[in-house]
Amino acid sequence: MHLTLEFGGGLELLLEKSTKVHKVDLQPNDGDGKVVMKGLLAWVKSNLIKERPEMFLKGDSVRPGVLVLINDCDWELCGGLDAELEEKDVVVFISTLHGG
């Protein structure tokens, strides 16, 4: 499944070369061919995050204070961790925790 992931608000600093936009190809691994946000977060943690994962994740979700948008829609309206992703979705992560 092809997804576009964007990291902002300082989260990009946790990634290789501080790259903000990542075009990724994710293999659904749970048999039914679905990718849900929970799985995506785990994938991001093991494949993209290079340092301080605790700035991004807490437990099995994002750290409180990290905003998530799926196709420019607040993930709280899409089912949060259980939101199902589809081909070509755009997922944006923005930290609110950096200076103001």
Partner: peptide, 30 residues
């Protein structure tokens, strides 16, 4: 951030596509 175009993006049919409780017309965004 090329993905975030202004104006409503065509929403995929899924749980996230409910309508705004204020205008009742557009898709809720937050």
């Amino acid at each position: 951030m090329d993905s975030a175009v202004d104006g409503p993006r065509q929403p995929p049919a899924r749980a996230g596509s409910r309508l705004c409780t204020r205008c009742g017309e557009r898709k809720a965004a937050l």
